[in-house]
Structures are given as C-alpha cells and as structure tokens.
C-alpha cells in the first residue's frame, strides 16, 4: 500500500458566530493516495468544503482548526506558517474553486496572474518563458486564441472559460494534488461536461491526485474512484465508488441515492428523505442523522454517536445498524 499523499486526521473546526461557537467539522479523517480521485460528497452544511479549507489554512477569520492534523507528504499543514503554506498551495497542491471570479484578481490580466503563480514557485523562470508557458497552458485547457486570451481580464471570460483558466492556473506548477471545490456547480450542464472532461484529462496527464468536493452524486459517479460521504460535520460512510452507489451501508447514503430523480427511469413518487437538514448550531445528541433515519425507530443505540466502523473491504460506515443494510438493494423503509 502506498503512503497517502494527504492524510487528514481527526480534524475539528469551529466557527465563532454571534452567541457562541459552531463546530462545522467534527473529527473528520480521510486519506488521498498519489494519483487517486477521491470524491467528497455532502449537502450544504455537511462540512465538506470546510474540511479542505481547514487542511489548507484557508479558513475565513472567524474559523479555527481546534484539533487534528492534515499531513501532506508527511508534513502537518495545521499550524504551519502562512509563508510555508503559500509555498505548498499553488505548487504542490492546485486549487479549483466554484467561483473563479473571486479567485482571480479583477484588475490583472489572466495571463499575468498565471505567470505570477509560475514565477513565484519556479525561481529563475524568465518573464518571457513564463509568458510562453501561460499560452501553452491556456491552450492545453482548451481556450481558443490563447495569446489573445492571456491579455484579457477575468471579466472578459465566460464562466466556463474562467473555470478553464482556473484549472490552467491550478495545474501550472504540476501539483501532486488538485483540490476542486464544487468546480462545476455554477456552470450549465453542457459546460459542466466540458470541464469534467478537462479535469479528467488534466489528471491523467499530470498524474495528480484529485479531490472532488461536490453535492452532485452524478459528478461523483462519473469522476471518482473512492467516495467520502459527509453529513453534519462528520464522515458517515466511505468506500469505493461502486460500493457507495450499489452497496451503501449508511441509511443517509441510501436515502440520498434513492431520492434522486433519474433521467433513465421514471418513478411515480420520489422516495424522499424526510425532515430537514440538521442545524449545525443545534445538532441532536448521538447520531446526527437519527431524526431523519428510518433505522432509528427509537432504538437506544442511536442516542450514542456511532463510530466509523468497518463494513467491508475498504468500506466504513458510521451507523450502529449498518449490518442490517448488508445485501439489501435499494433503500430502507
């Protein structure tokens, strides 16, 4: 077994809010090995993005990692000085965000910004060489007329083009890991297809590992090898992608999959998950999914927090009753 490239270990992140502290991430662990594609899926408030931002030192001012580690190539990123982090982000770890408009500086041309990233991490790279490399990169991500485009400002790009430029910037220094946070959520479906295709290609060519953070199970199914399902600040299930979609052992994963409307078949009524997503400021004690869970049925076990227990080869589930889901196809009533 290869050493993990990134190993997130029991990260706990809190945000100061008016009237107290919200624990947005509550003991999340996950490993990414070189070259692998890991999907992190969850709904808003599940903590999927915050986990990554915690690891990368990109939390907003009112957020703080209160416990845990995030080791990248053996080095703990938590508590690392900002200068050191900057050296790693952009060189060894490339980032792709949901909204490239906020990631780009609006008063610099796209070419200048990518060149700056190149020169910051590659000492001795001349301005001219950097400029040539930028054009090459823009061409690689499928931006037509790259010489002209490099001289344009971010607002002159369409959403899809901006996302391509963002990917060019993320891959500029041949990172070992690319983290994509909802990279296609703001895009239309035909543009999403282009960007997913591009991400897949870039990953193949650079042999980088990819963490795909998304709420879209379709994107997870299309793109990833291993999946981490998050709910209310915790990992509730993790397994390879086929297992998650066909032999999930957590009632939330099952519920989510079943509730999706499908293009390929129609059902009379969607089997929806009942209730509301949990309020991170007032999580129920014990299992956070308990109030919405069909397996709960008032059982006492659900009042204690389930550990992420093995449920098969490379498969873990944070449900006391995951064994009851073994062999069952479809959902639980």
């Amino acid at each position: 077994m290869t050493e993990p490239l990134l190993s997130i270990d029991e990260i706990v992140t809190e945000f100061r809010v008016e009237g107290g502290v919200v624990r947005a991430v509550n003991g999340v662990s996950l490993d990414v090995r070189p070259g692998e594609t890991v999907g992190v899926v969850g709904e808003s408030g599940s903590g999927k993005s915050v986990t990554m931002m915690s690891a990368l030192g990109l939390l907003p001012g009112h957020g703080r990692v209160v416990a845990g580690h995030a080791r990248f190539r053996g080095r703990d990123l938590v508590g690392l000085a900002e200068r050191e982090l900057e050296r790693i982000r952009g060189r060894e770890i490339g980032l792709v965000f949901q909204d490239p408009m906020t990631a780009f500086n609006p008063v610099m041309t796209v070419g200048e910004q990518i060149a700056e990233g190149l020169r910051r991490h590659q000492a001795g790279l001349s301005r001219r060489a950097a400029g040539a490399r930028v054009v090459e990169l823009l061409a690689e991500v499928g931006i037509p007329a790259p010489e002209r485009r490099a001289r344009q400002y971010p607002h002159e790009f369409s959403g899809g083009m901006r996302q391509r430029a963002m990917i060019a910037m993320a891959m500029a220094n041949r990172p070992a890991l690319i983290i994509a946070d909802e990279p296609t959520t703001a895009l239309d479906v035909t543009i999403q297809a282009q960007i997913l295709d591009l991400l897949g290609r870039v990953q193949q060519e650079t042999e980088a590992a990819l963490i795909m953070i998304t709420h879209d199970l379709g994107v997870i199914a299309e793109m990833t090898e291993r999946v981490v399902v998050m709910y209310a600040g915790r990992v509730v299930e993790t397994a390879d992608v086929d297992t998650v979609f066909h032999e999930a052992r957590h009632p939330y994963t099952r519920g989510l999959l079943r509730s999706l409307p499908r293009l390929d078949h129609r059902v009379a009524e969607l089997p929806a998950i009942g209730g509301q997503p949990p309020n991170p400021q007032a999580l129920p004690p014990g299992c956070s999914y308990r109030p919405r869970c069909p397996l709960n049925q008032g059982r006492d076990e659900c009042l204690t927090r389930p550990e992420l227990n093995p449920a098969g080869r490379g498969h873990r589930s944070a449900c006391h009753f995951h064994a009851e889901l073994a062999g069952l196809t479809g959902g639980v009533e």
Partner: peptide
C-alpha cells in the same frame, strides 16, 4: 405525503 417538516423548536 412527505414527512412533516420540523420547525425550529
């Protein structure tokens, strides 16, 4: 019918 929503308690 869908499950009755809970309102903040």
């Amino acid at each position: 019918m869908t499950t009755l929503d809970t309102v903040p308690a």
